Amino acid sequence: MTGLRVIPVEPRHRADWDRLYAGYAEFYGVAQTPAMRDRVWSWLHDPAHGTRGLVAEDAEGRAVGLAHFRAFARPLSATTGGYLDDLFVDPQMRGQRMADALIAALAEEGRRQGWSVIRWITAENNARARAVYDRVATLTPWRTYDIPL
């Protein structure tokens, strides 16, 4: 897509980001309130919080994709990695490699930070996203477990 650029999320992206993040929550069947989005938005702009965000902008400067990420310690390798928490592209903009561009920008940020890996999870049935991930990364044999608190 011509005119696409990936940049850190800025205050001017709020309305687009809200729409995208609500779409992401809906896709995964997560009940998300405006107050929850307000909290995450505040994290993205708080230098003391570890969560950061990128957006993919179209030629008109509208955010049409988002990625949230953070650093995480890797004690066994004595390194720091990057964790991709959320990745979402406007359904009408899919198929233009925006997810690839967001992941590539995150990988570049990881190189700048000296991270040893970028890691993420996705749902088993998220076939479209998995096709992208299979193209740009290596599937690992690890399983994820949760203990609800």
Rank of each mutant, 00 (worst) to 15 (best):
M1G: 13
L54F: 10
R62H: 14
V40A: 04
Q113A: 13
F72T: 07
E60A: 15
R97W: 07
F88C: 00
R19A: 15
A123V: 04
L102R: 05
L20N: 02
F27T: 00
L76C: 12
D38I: 05
A63I: 01
Y133S: 07
Q32N: 09
A59N: 07
H49Q: 13
G53Q: 05
A127C: 01
R111S: 05
E124L: 09
M1E: 06
Q113G: 12
G81L: 04
P141F: 00
M36H: 14
A73V: 15
Q32V: 12
L54D: 03
R128V: 13
R5M: 12
P141E: 03
P34C: 06
L4V: 07
V132F: 06
I118N: 09
F27C: 00
L4T: 15
S77L: 13
V64Q: 10
W17G: 01
M1V: 06
E108D: 12
L44E: 05
F27D: 04
E57Q: 12
L102T: 01
W120H: 09
L66A: 02
T144Y: 12
F88Y: 15
V117I: 13
D134F: 05
A73R: 11
P11Q: 04
G81R: 05
A71G: 15
A31G: 11
F72V: 09
A71R: 15
A25L: 10
T140L: 14
M36I: 08
P8A: 15
H68F: 10
L139C: 11
V6K: 03
T122S: 15
R39W: 03
W41N: 06
P47C: 09
T122M: 02
E57T: 13
L4H: 05
A73F: 15
S42K: 09
A25K: 10
R12I: 06
A35E: 15
S116C: 09
A35P: 10
A71N: 14
E124K: 12
Y24I: 04
R111A: 08
D134R: 15
W142E: 12
H13W: 02
R112I: 01
G61H: 02
A101K: 15
Q113V: 00
D90Q: 05
E10M: 10
Y133M: 05
F72H: 15
W43V: 00
